[in-house]
């Protein structure tokens, strides 16, 4: 598996760290929304939106990846 960092180009999987499902972070105090954010997962077999970090340039990325085939269709900067 190779990912394409918007800054550094296509690099080996070893340079990246998976950072969890790309969920929207809730606001406010602990409640069902936070519980769902921390614990519950769609866990899709197919298209999956995930946070990854490119360890080399430290950029956080949003990755659209197929969990059945490991094919990566899109990588964008997380803050974009």
């Amino acid at each position: 598996m190779r990912l394409t960092c918007p800054h550094c180009g296509t690099r080996d999987l070893r340079e990246f760290t998976y950072g969890g499902a790309a969920l929207e972070r809730p606001t406010g105090d602990w409640g069902p929304a936070w519980d769902a954010y921390v614990h519950l997962r769609e866990n899709p077999a197919g298209a999956s939106f995930e946070w990854w970090q490119h360890d080399v340039c430290a950029t956080w990325l949003k990755v659209d990846r197929d969990t059945r085939t490991h094919v990566i269709s899109q990588v964008t900067e997380a803050r974009a």
């Binding site: 598996m1 080996d12 998976y18």
Partner: peptide, 12 residues
Amino acid sequence: FYPSYAQRGNLP
């Protein structure tokens, strides 16, 4: 360390 249903992993 990444989610997968592929039943095969990567070389690293």
